[in-house]
């Protein structure tokens, strides 16, 4: 089984360790290319964030520095607004539930379609892209009756996960599809099947571990989506992190607060994703 799993490994790391001759020159050129690309894109991504951070530290007079906008995030909780901590908690719970359901729905289905029911592949791709084509603002209109029904059973904000799964479909699907197309699914499954593996084993223990990078990316995208979702929570009158930050920034006269809150939210998501990427790696290796 280990030999089968090794089939789909990327050998990039192995070749990187002993460059020689013509390869050495290419590697130097490649490294130069990488440094240029990382610097240019790093600047492109960081500059707007720095501008935002600078603006959130703007004092009352233009050009001065002050921490007021940051202090207001924590100090705003006393006015009967539900504390920030509870909305963070609910958002994290939402993120976990959504990730689990997205992966549980997509990974086996996609592998199964690839192996056994290829005529459904195009249908699945269309279905998965569909959520992107319908603006959230319109989807909410159609969701109204369905959420009315759901609210009969539970009014918790956690119920948002039903629709978040749908929102995450396009991103998770593309990430998984790219990973799935990079491995030889047919050969892997034929080898496993001829060794007597059940379909469950083929999917869970042979193919899924070979696409763990893709699964991790799908996880990152889903996680970030849930942490950053605002429109639907706001329109369906649920409470999540973004909605909470929005109401904080709306209820203070300080214009800098919208920047300090969204910068804080970004950093929060970034740190979480960074931690997640380490956890994903370690699990993958074990």
């Amino acid at each position: 089984m280990a030999a089968i799993a090794a089939l789909g490994e990327t050998p990039a790391a192995a070749s990187a360790s002993h460059p020689s001759g013509m390869q050495a020159r290419r590697r130097r050129r490649l490294n130069l290319f990488r440094y240029v690309v990382f610097t240019v894109f790093g600047l492109f991504f960081l500059l707007p964030l720095l501008a935002m951070a600078r603006f959130s530290l703007e004092g009352a007079k233009l050009g001065t520095w002050s921490l007021t906008a940051w202090r207001e995030i924590t100090s705003f909780q006393s006015d009967g607004v539900p504390p920030l901590a509870s909305s963070i908690e609910i958002t994290l719970e939402l993120a976990v539930i959504t990730c689990v359901i997205v992966l549980a729905l997509l990974v086996p289905t996609m592998i199964w379609i690839r192996l056994r029911v290829q005529w459904l592949a195009r249908t699945m791709e269309v279905l998965c892209l569909l959520p992107l084509t319908i603006p959230a603002i319109v989807l909410v209109v159609g969701l109204g009756p369905i959420y009315n029904r759901i609210q009969h059973y539970s009014v918790s904000s956690l119920m948002l996960f039903w629709i978040y799964v749908i929102l995450a479909l396009p991103y998770a699907y593309r990430a998984l599809a790219a990973g799935l197309s990079a491995i030889d699914v047919t050969t892997l499954s034929e080898a496993a099947r001829s060794l007597g593996a059940s379909w469950f084993t083929v999917i869970v223990r042979v193919i899924a571990p070979n696409m763990r990078e893709a699964i991790l990316n799908a996880l990152l995208l889903t996680w970030a989506l849930v942490l950053g979702e605002f429109t639907i929570a706001y329109l369906l009158l649920y409470n999540n992190l973004q909605e909470e930050l929005f109401s904080i920034s709306r209820n203070t006269p300080n214009a800098g607060v919208i920047f300090s809150t969204s910068f804080a939210a970004l950093m929060f998501a970034f740190v979480l994703l960074l931690i997640l990427s380490f956890v994903g790696r370690r699990r993958g290796r074990g």
Binding site: F38, F45, L47, P48, L49, A51, M52, R54, F55, Y171, N217, L220, L221, W223, A224, L225, L227, G228, F230, I258, F259, S262, L266, A269, F270, L273, L274, L276, S277
Partner: peptide, 23 residues
């Protein structure tokens, strides 16, 4: 870059437009 991409891919809306406006 991966963690940053995950965050920035979903970053948008009012704050993004304002960040560019400020920049």
């Amino acid at each position: 870059y991966l963690a940053g991409s995950g965050v920035l891919a979903q970053f948008g809306g009012i704050t993004l437009a304002f960040a560019f406006l400020v920049l």
